[in-house]
Write a protein that binds this DNA or RNA. Sequence first.
DNA 1: ATGTTCGATGACTACGTAAGCATTGAATCC
DNA 2: GGATTCAATGCTTACGTAGTCATCGAACAT
Lengths: 344, 344
Amino acid sequence: MSSKSGADSSRRTRRGVTSVDVAAAAGVSQATVGRVFSSPGKVSPATRDKVQDAAAQLGYVPNVIARSLKSQRTNIIGAVVPAFGEYWQSVLTEFSRQLATKDRQLLLFSFAEPGDVDGVLASVAQYRLDGLVLASATIGQDQLIQMRESGRPVVAFNHPAATGIVPSVSVDNEAGMSRLAMHLINTGAREILYVGGVSSASTDQTRYRGASRTLGEHGVACTYLEAGAFTYEAGYKVAQNIVERQPSPDAVMVSSDEVAFGVHDGLRAAGVQVPADLLLTGFDGLSQSAWAGFDLTTLVQATDVLVARAIEVLLTDDRPPESDPVSVVVPGTIRYGKTTAKTP
Amino acid sequence: MSSKSGADSSRRTRRGVTSVDVAAAAGVSQATVGRVFSSPGKVSPATRDKVQDAAAQLGYVPNVIARSLKSQRTNIIGAVVPAFGEYWQSVLTEFSRQLATKDRQLLLFSFAEPGDVDGVLASVAQYRLDGLVLASATIGQDQLIQMRESGRPVVAFNHPAATGIVPSVSVDNEAGMSRLAMHLINTGAREILYVGGVSSASTDQTRYRGASRTLGEHGVACTYLEAGAFTYEAGYKVAQNIVERQPSPDAVMVSSDEVAFGVHDGLRAAGVQVPADLLLTGFDGLSQSAWAGFDLTTLVQATDVLVARAIEVLLTDDRPPESDPVSVVVPGTIRYGKTTAKTP
DNA sequence: ATGTTCGATGACTACGTAAGCATTGAATCC
DNA sequence: GGATTCAATGCTTACGTAGTCATCGAACAT
């Protein structure tokens, strides 16, 4: 029957082996087991081996929940992200990848409607997260302030309107769009149409400002048109408006790649050739922009750098109590595709 | 000075208001505060109001960590997902959306290399998750078994090889690809090339089986070619092999949409017209497959249904101790695009 | 030989919540 | 009017870990 003792102890295993169990098995105190897992250097090699053997035998795994309760750190970073959109998905993935290398996990809070954000933020508060990424350009000022008041590290990702309210990391939206505008001017465009996604998104506003300022300085006309969503479909649909427009533009600047893809295909469906009849630019540098079917001129965001900086801001939270929140701006790179290629 | 008492208590607020603080403020016991938040019906209305007022005043938010420690439930579902790929990103987003409506959160464990999975699984074990989604078709049998032994609800998402080992939810990969094969036969294809992504992925194997079986039954030739990755680039590159092939195929079936996009563009770059010279099918039904530039014939997975079923399996974990794990198979729908349109 | 130092270890407790059990007071019944 | 019942609430403890402090013994210096 003594041979059954192993099975016996594994019965208790079902609902969790604790450090106390390991301590008993190894003939040491719970404190020593804890030390073996948190600061192994403070335990003699002999004891350490004994404990590790016992732990392996019982299948002991430290309980992060309990550790978090005691240490007040969860090693979990929260991310508030819109439920849709290629861009945000790619950002999310990058965060997850980079956090994994730092032994942090990402807890996802996605929201479909801007109105859902409040519910999400309430839910966020319950988890004692080590940090929170606000990855959406439509989060309101009051919500940002509420997050700042939570007393936990926060960073706004690519949300220009958050600058000065909470620490933020963004690509240089204004300069990027400005450079794209210069490129169009240099390519000969004189009548430019700007297609935004959702005008309430702060990225949308900032990007448009970059375009209109530069175009204005060079005496080039620029009109704003709102697609209504940051989606392919919205872009496809708005293409119809573009072709009917008078005077007909010779270039279209779009706020985001995903919308630009839709505009691209919508224009083609309407019989407009890009770039022969109309130049086209996007923004974001999604991987699809390099696909042969599009080969879109766009501003490529170095997502890996942006994310790395955001994580840095979150984890090294050395805010002197009441100083201004940091604001990191990362420059972008223009990708020159055939959608703005000079046609001889 | 008594006017400062408010500020005084908010100083303690900095590092977390607890139910004890609320109890003191409301003049009740901690237990009563707890009841107000977990089973309000057991508290008299007068007391309830008092407590709720005090809680609101102090900005009390229940600590989920502590609750989890006590209740042994975290309300968090883990997801082990590959770090790349449009398909998995869309699945992930859908999980997050649906779980949010059930007051569950999604903790992300992404991995870049198949070899990283073991590390991820070790990390997963530390969190006492309420359930775990294994969303990858390359997780090994031993790893699946290890997860099953953890004693927590697990579901394999679209990983045919996991069937019978852990509960699983998949689209009908074999039947779907079989139906696409029939469609090609009916459209007149007689020499078919099958392009897989990574042959070790169980979806890849199952899909190929569906194609080859049906094609074989109808006396149509079928060769397997491996792209090497489930990416656009891999597809683009393999297109070169396709055009050089003898006898030249009249249709290409691809294991996944993303690879198919690459094949599509690669073929075009090589001067091959789809569908005039060659028919093309994908698999997954990514949103891009409907984009005008591709208009790809593919098998559309009802991701929302698949995810809903997976969540159902996870949350209603009524496994009779040693019965066979459930296996849910959801049929797909063919999307007929112009890549297989009969050309007169 | 005795005091000193230091590494190794154990006992104890706090973290914030929830659930079981104990207590109270008021309303009900005979 | 006293016993019974029940709703409302308080008291206590357990969840699993980590840090503080105390203890112990061995190595070392005087």
